[in-house]
Design a protein around this nucleic acid. Sequence first.
DNA 1: CTCAGAATAT
DNA 2: AATATTCTGA
Length: 256
Amino acid sequence: MTVVKDHRRDDLRDEFPVGMHVLAVDDDSTCLMILETMLRRCQYNVTSTNNAKTALNLLRGNKNKFDLVISDVQMPDMDGFQLLELVGLEMDLPVIMLSVNDDPKMVMKGITHGACDYLLKPVRIKEIQNIWQHVVRRKTVDSKERNKTSNQDKAKVDSNESGSVATGNSDQIGKSSRKRKDEDDDEENDNEHSSSQKKPRVVWTVELHHKFISAVNQLGYEKAVPKKILDMMNVEKLTRENVASHLQAFFLTLLL
DNA sequence: CTCAGAATAT
DNA sequence: AATATTCTGA
């Protein structure tokens, strides 16, 4: 009997730090769910909460339990930056910020407050797959050099690290977001067959996507079906097909 | 006939 | 790659 069961060309196998403990924080329950799902898929050990205070309590109560914190920026009780700061003060954990806001000021704020990464929503699972590198880096640096000059922060911003860890990097920040809502009723040419009616493609801006997410959120994952989502979103010009298409794509990105 | 979901096309 | 359109079955 051949004892060959080693045939794996599976992707996430080789040296993924399985079981790393991640604390996910987001007030939007659907986002949280998605985040959780993605993290689990990537074989992280996930604890999640929908508010920063609980997050803090969890962290304080289990100083060694977590390896990484990933938190939304905008939250009701305490915003992500405060959380970030407190965590930085009280413990040595890598924190990743999540936001729909691609404003460079915000990104900068995150970084200067000590975030080790700043991801834009909607987050793709590929970005999640890669975050363990921050933990590794932190640990490596930490054990090697315990240098703590009693200096206030110097706001030294390093764009992106130069290639260091295995897989290629994720994308850059500072793109996307076009102004939507293009009303078009301009008359102009009624030539026979040329262009009479434009067919505006629906552009799923972050905002629109967010509405979509909220709708799905309220309906619940199982009951979220195009028509219901559609009239829950209540966006003009949007068709059931549009939503259906987006829904399909959306689930694909979740599983990718 | 209407819709969801998958497949396929642009 | 993102969104639209077509197809199938309920």
